[in-house]
Computed example of a mutant assay.
Amino acid sequence: MSEAETFRVQRATSDFRWPNGARIAVVFNLAYEAWSPGKAPGIGPMGNVLQPGFFDTNAHSWASYGAVRGIQRLTRIAAANGVKASIMVNAVLAETHPAVLAELHAAGHEIVAHSYGMDVIPVYFDEAGERANIRRTTDLIAGITGERPLGWISPRGTGSLISPRLLAEEGYVWFGDCNDDDLPAIIAASDAVDSPRIVAIPLTMDVNDLPHSIRYGNAPAALVEQFRAILDNAPRADDAPFMLDVTAHTHAFGRPAGAWAYDAMIKLALERDDIWIGTRMEIARHALAQGQMFKDQTT
C-alpha cells in the first residue's frame, strides 16, 4: 500500500472564470471501457452476482457492447452536434480494437488514458507496479494514435495516494481521480521550483449514466431532466463558477435506449449562452494559463 504524500495544492479562487467569461463549463465524456483478457465486470444488467470462481458471460457480453456498437453510435451523435468528447480508453482496446482507437484520435476527440483495463486499478499496486501500468497504458495508446495521452482517469476514479506524483513524472498534464471540488486545482509534489505539476480536474458524478440508470434504475429521460434542472437552477442559487461532466458509458447509454439522452443533453448545452463546452485537456490548459487565479492550499 502506498503511503500518503504531502502535495502543494493551488485551488481556484472565486474570481476564476471559464473561457469567454462563462461561469459554467460542460465536458462531454465517453467511457470506452474493457476488461483484461479473461476478466469481466463484477456485475452485469441482471444485477445479481455469480458465485465466486465462475466467469460471468452475461456481464462480459454486456460490457463488450461498447466496442461493438456503442462507441460508434455515441461518437456519431457527438459529431452531428459538432462536439469533441473526452474519451476514457482502456489500453487493452488498443490491442483488441486498434482501428477504432485510431479513428477516435483522427476525429479530434481527446483520448484519456483509463489504465490497462477496468480491473487494473492503481490503488492495488505498489509504486513500481503502478508506474509500470502507467507506462504500459501510455505506450499502447501512443502506439496506435501516434500521440501520448496527456490526461488520466483511473477505473472508478480510484488512483493511489501517490498517483498525482507518478502521473506528473510520466508527463501527464492532468488527472481526474478526484471529486473534492467542482473547479480544477494545480498540484505539485513539493515547493521546489522544478517539482512536476499536474492539474486535478474533478470527475463530477451528477450527470453520469452508470450510477443513474444501471445502479439506481432511473430512466434516461430523468437524467436529461436532471441536467436541465442543474443548468437552470444552480446559477440562480449561487454565482460561483463550476464545471459539470456529462458522462455516457459506451456499453450503457451507447445503446439506442440511452443514446438519445446523450444527444438531448448536448443540445441543451448548445442552446445556452452561459456555458463553455470543452474537453478536459482544454480545461487543463486554461487552468495553467490562469495561474494567478489559484491560491495555495497544502494537503
Rank of each mutant, 00 (worst) to 15 (best):
P196Y: 10
G157V: 15
A99S: 14
M265A: 09
Q10A: 13
A80S: 15
L268Q: 15
D206E: 14
Y116M: 02
G42H: 04
G108P: 09
T57K: 11
M1D: 03
G42P: 06
A257H: 14
V26I: 15
Q292H: 07
Q226G: 07
E5Y: 10
P155R: 05
A102K: 13
I230Y: 01
M1N: 05
H249Y: 02
E282M: 11
T6P: 01
G44D: 04
V246I: 15
I121K: 00
W174P: 00
G151I: 02
E225Q: 10
P52A: 13
H60V: 05
N81T: 09
I24M: 12
F253T: 01
D126H: 14
K84E: 02
I275S: 07
K295I: 08
F54A: 12
G151S: 11
V100F: 08
R255D: 09
D126R: 08
D263T: 00
H212Q: 08
V27T: 02
N133E: 14
M243R: 08
M281T: 07
I24A: 11
V26E: 00
T137K: 10
F125C: 01
A229H: 13
A107V: 06
S2E: 12
R255L: 07
A99W: 09
G146I: 02
R165A: 11
F242C: 01
Y124Q: 09
D273I: 10
I230P: 02
L231C: 07
V92K: 02
I144V: 15
H60L: 08
N218W: 03
I153C: 13
R228T: 15
A31S: 10
G42L: 02
H105G: 13
N81E: 15
